[in-house]
Structure formats: structure tokens, C-alpha cells
Design a binder for these strands. Structure first.
Lengths: 167, 167
DNA sequence: ATCTCTAACATGGGATTTCATGGTATTCAA
DNA sequence: TTGAATACCATGAAATCCCATGTTAGAGAT
């Protein structure tokens, strides 16, 4: 019996490639956008050389990841009750809204206009690595967002204490 | 320790291409409809170059996929009790109602009139990628439907957390 | 530490191909 | 022969490929 399991045995974050750091690149008139080189190193699955991007349902920015991330979401969804309304809504919100963007020879993707508009991108775009996935923001929008995020982090820093680490 | 498992009878996700994104194409007077190029790339099984489409039993839209999807459904049904009412219903709803639509030289299919009517298609049709399968809607009908799906997804987004995803 | 050379990277512009779509011709059956 | 279905071209727009350029980061030598 074939089984596909996503659990502690398979996904060890410590060994997994992760999207890290932040970079701002230019979005040219043709809609081309260079994906940061260290992001590109993370996404390959042998079959598809590119990223998957979708509009966040949390705000005016984009979310993205490798195709594997989508497969993980798919596995998660298929473990849900097929008649669960939330499952159906997720399927539509994730699969229907996401785009497969493949790299050109120099590691760029062409970002569809509607996505660029959704995120308010105007000539520049900021990639934010978040481990398993990443976000794409308009630099200005991100700047103000980061400001409040820093504040939030300061206020909650006691929750970040690592276990067994006597600070 | 939480595990998500997809058992036998399902496809191996890692090797599967997925239907992603949304595209609206025109349905011309002859009933011809271009299938989005990325969808075409997903369906080939060497034998049959086209898609399979049937009216959804959930609403006024069509469902579809590659021939492989039907084979998976078949395998699933054959594992069910032959007198299970649900099995009989599925057989009628999916196999009896589904049509095999092959691509012409430029990647179009001709959609039978009754299917177009069922989905209320009128000059345009929206393909919605949902991972393993896809749907075809009238653009207007889908727009209002997608709106509520986004809302539902947003309200339930905490249920979507992948394991090992810090956030 | 400083300098230089090199390789990787981000970016721009032009050429080429793919894609969606409209139209015409051809085939087949009634 | 007439209608319908199918196969075959034509076109404009958009996406993709290919090559060139400037810039940065790092390695190695001095």
C-alpha cells in the first residue's frame, strides 16, 4: 500500500532549504522580475523550475513558494472532509488563484499584471523570505508594515524564548 | 505527533502536475473553446489527447480533468461496495455524464451545447484550476461565487497551517 | 590589509515563439 | 445538397528566449 505521509518523519525543517532574507528587485516594463538567487536554489523539484505565487487573502501582497509547498497544501486539503465547506473554499482560494511562474534563462519570472496590481507593485518588488514560503510586497507598503511588525515583535518578545535556553 | 496521510488509491502527489490558476476564454459560435495552455500540459496520457468534462452535481458548472482523473475515480469506485448507494450515484453522475473532448490542432475543444447550457455559458468560459481537477464556470457566476469562497477561506485560515510551519 | 581578477547576479533590449482566436476549406452524414 | 462537425491557415498580442552590459562578491595573489 502506497502512502504519502507528511509528518515529523518527512519534513524536518532544520534540514530543509528555506527562504531567508529580504531583497528588493526591479519589475520592468515587460513585467519581468528577478527572483533572488538564494530563493531560486530552494525551489527545484526536478520537474518544474520556477515558483508559485498567489494573492494573499490577508492583505495587499503576494505569497509564494516552490511547487512543493503547493503539494503540501494539497495533501493537507485532501486530508480534510471532501464536503467541508472550508476545504472547498481553500481549494478555490489557493489553487484557483495561484500562478505557476517559470524562470527564464537568467532567473526571472514574468509577473502577471493583475498580481502586480493586487500588490500595488510599481517598478520595484520586495521579496521576504519566511522559511517555507515567501512574500512579495511593494517596498513602501512593506516598510510601513515592517514597522508595526517590529513593534509587535518587541511587545511579544517574551514568547520567543527558546526552550532550555537560560537567556 | 500529527501526521497527514493519503492512503492507497491516490496518486503520488510529488509526480503529479496540478491544475493551477484561473483563465477566461471565449466560447465561439461553433462551440469551440481554448483550453489554457498550462492545463493542456497536465492531461496527456499518451493515448488520449484531450480532457474529460461532466456537469457538476453540485451546481450549474462543469467539472473536468485529464483521463487519468477518471481512471482514479474508477479505481476508487471499484473499491466500494457495488450496492453502495453512493457508488451508484457517483457512477451515474460522473461516468455516465462525462464526455471525452479531444483537442484540435490549436488546443481547443468543442463543447457540446447541452454542457454549455448547463453551465450557462454565453460567449465566455472560466477555467478554474483546483489541483487534481478543474471546473468551468460562466465568468459572472464564478465571480460571485469566488467572492464568498475568499471570505470563507479568510475566516478559516487558521485551519490551513502546515505542520512545522512556524509563522 | 590591499589589489586584481573572475564568476555570479541583476537588468536592459531585441528577436523569436507560443497562445488565443477568428476565419476558410474539407469531410462526412443525413 | 445541406448542415454539422472537423481539419487547416492567418493574425495580433503576449510570453519566452537569447545576448549584451554594468555591478557586486569573493578568491587568490602580493
Amino acid at each position: 500500500m502506497l502512502e504519502i505521509c507528511i509528518g515529523a518523519g518527512e519534513l524536518r525543517l532544520g534540514e530543509m532549504a528555506m527562504f531567508l532574507s529580504t531583497a528588493t528587485n526591479t519589475l520592468d516594463a515587460k513585467g519581468r522580475l528577478s527572483v533572488p538567487a538564494d530563493f531560486r536554489a530552494v525551489v527545484g523539484d526536478g520537474n518544474f523550475d520556477g515558483i508559485v505565487v498567489w494573492p494573499s487573502f490577508d492583505g495587499a501582497y503576494l505569497e509564494g513558494g516552490g511547487i512543493k509547498l503547493l503539494q503540501d497544501y494539497q495533501a493537507l486539503l485532501e486530508s480534510m472532509d471532501p464536503y467541508d465547506e472550508a476545504r472547498i473554499a481553500f481549494e478555490r482560494a489557493i489553487f484557483a488563484e495561484s500562478r505557476r511562474l517559470s524562470f527564464d534563462g537568467t532567473g526571472r519570472v514574468t509577473l502577471p499584471k493583475d498580481l502586480a496590481e493586487y500588490a500595488g507593485l510599481n517598478g520595484r518588488a520586495t521579496f521576504i523570505g519566511l522559511g517555507r514560503r515567501f512574500e512579495i510586497w511593494s517596498p513602501e507598503a512593506y516598510e510601513s508594515h515592517a514597522e508595526s511588525a517590529r513593534k509587535m515583535a518587541r511587545e511579544n518578545r517574551h514568547r520567543l524564548r527558546l526552550q532550555g535556553r537560560p537567556e
